[in-house]
Design a protein around this nucleic acid. Structure first.
Lengths: 106, 106
DNA sequence: AAACTATATCGTAATATTGCAATATACATA
DNA sequence: TATGTATATTGCAATATTACGATATAGTTT
């Protein structure tokens, strides 16, 4: 198997899971943190910042881009990445119910 | 490979990634949402609530338990699960920096 | 004790993820 | 046009995840 049965769950649940998966790797957390820290579009910098090979970072960037968390703009022969503000705000909204609920049980 | 190089990243980054991974499946999102909704310890209910086989749910519960998101108390021959409040609060704190930062770029 | 109920574990098949070397693509500059 | 720079894609090996049938464990009830 190894195949998540997404059709058995709500669209909202799948969306949260997909976005959580995009964050579910330390390299991708590091990329997000870095982009938030510098608060600007950066190009080559990420490859120098992380201790992983260039193809590996490119792959992680692709996943973050697929999830809509970051976006890339072509800038000459380089590509500038930055946080995709609208989607990122939406993520905050999606996670709020499960990360901000006060639980009074136990 | 297929082996995340956790030693190359900070403890904080790995912690966020691990917790995100625990949320990164719609069944586990559904379990968390359900526990927050009923706001009480429940036992057998989860197996009836989700459209997956009992061993599969047991496996997902184990992962949530390992991540510290839920806890289980033995109650007769049943086991009552509920949100692990202290850890859940900690998660909120861990995610706040990357999910609450205002980004002014682009 | 025997039967029932609730949950966990084992074993296994299918699929996904991670990481990187090699290579390709695309633009810039000499 | 040749060379350099930046990023993406391909291909592959190692490992992880997902799902579930079969079975085990543990308490409960008859």
């Amino acid at each position: 198997m190894g195949l998540t049965k997404t059709d058995l769950f709500s669209e909202n649940q799948n969306e949260i899971a997909t976005l959580a998966r995009a964050i579910a790797h330390p390299a991708r957390v590091a990329i997000i943190e870095y982009l938030l820290k510098v608060n600007t579009c950066i190009c080559n910098a990420i490859v120098n910042e992380l201790p992983l090979a260039q193809p590996t970072i490119s792959q992680h960037l692709k996943e973050l881009k697929n999830a809509g968390i970051i976006k890339g703009n072509i800038e000459g022969n380089a590509i500038c990445y930055c946080i995709n503000e609208p989607v990122f705000s939406k993520i905050q909204g999606l996670f709020r119910p499960i990360l901000s609920t006060q639980n009074k049980c136990c």
